[in-house]
């Protein structure tokens, strides 16, 4: 059994009380949500914190999926399993269920949260790629109830680094809804439950004439953070969907990403996957948008 260094532990009673504690304790404190990223690091002693503030008691307050006409709002403490099982969410954004099916395993999904996934800012994190693809914005609450809303591009400032400052909490993710939507997610992994070799999400919004009104692609595990690729959006916008178009998008994905060779695969292979998975997910997203 791997054992962490000593730390103190406190259960949060409200979001503002948690923020108050964080403010007082500064960088020696960490929030723990599902704990599936934080605790392994602490047990391996790759990270040591003096205080853990457990926000799981706030599940009533921060665990929700609200599907509105213009927007879907998801509380930061919503668990993988809740995201997987929500039929409403799958209907609004099919990409979520695709992704959740291939994230970790049931044990991890029972505890791990959307907020923890985004705040971990691991370049391979699947939900970050999903949120990037869907152009999510992140609601961050700070001392005195001050709230700010940042885009995904602003949220991830580097590998394992986010815009959330000491004394702040990510409370909510907002996903804009637009008509004609279809989306999909694909991941290549060496084994079920493994982190992605590469994964890709694609979202399209088709106009009434069937052309692509807007499209976004998000990739995981091919750069310092999950990456949205604006050039793809620019290139395929206002075009009629076609295999040639997907190929073009795939080629852009391959050339825009910055993968590294590691145990999961060579940089060349990952680049190839960025291409292959971009084409596959765009194709499927369009099919879904049409049906």
């Amino acid at each position: 059994m791997q054992v962490p260094a000593p730390f103190e532990y406190e259960r949060a009673t409200s979001v503002d009380q948690a923020i108050g504690l964080m403010e007082r304790l500064g960088s020696s404190a960490r929030l723990v949500a599902g704990g599936h990223s934080l605790l392994p690091m602490m047990k391996l002693r790759l990270a040591n914190f003096e205080y853990l503030i457990d926000i799981n008691p706030l599940h009533d307050e921060l665990g929700y999926i609200r599907v509105g006409a213009d927007e879907v709002r998801i509380g930061a403490l919503t668990r993988h399993r809740e995201l997987l099982e929500s039929a409403e969410l799958a209907a609004a954004f099919p990409i979520f269920r695709d992704a959740e099916r291939v994230i970790a395993d049931p044990v991890v999904r029972n505890r791990g949260t959307l907020g923890g996934s985004l705040c971990q800012a691991d370049p391979s994190e699947d939900l970050s790629a999903v949120c990037t693809t869907l152009d999510a914005s992140c609601v961050i609450r700070g001392p005195g109830g001050a709230e700010r809303v940042v885009s995904m591009a602003e949220f991830h400032v580097g590998p394992y680094e986010t815009a959330v400052a000491d004394g702040e909490i990510l409370t909510e993710i907002r996903l804009p809804r637009r008509p004609g939507h279809g989306s999909a997610y694909e991941k290549v992994e060496r084994r079920a439950g493994d982190w992605a070799v590469v994964s890709a999400g694609a979202a399209v919004w088709l106009g009434a004439d069937g052309t692509i009104a807007d499209a976004r692609v998000g990739l995981a595990a091919v750069g310092p953070n999950t990456t949205g690729i604006p050039e793809i959006s620019d290139t395929i916008k206002d075009q009629a969907p076609s295999e040639a178009l997907y190929e073009q998008a795939g080629a852009i994905a391959a050339r825009s990403c910055d993968p590294a060779t590691d145990q999961r695969g060579s940089a060349d292979y990952k680049r190839h996957l960025a291409d292959e998975l971009t084409r596959r997910t765009l194709r499927k997203a369009v099919e879904r948008a049409r049906s």
């Binding site: 070799v197 695969g265 190839h272």
Partner: peptide, 8 residues
Amino acid sequence: LTPSRVWD
């Protein structure tokens, strides 16, 4: 024979 090695 990981995917990357098969691709090679």
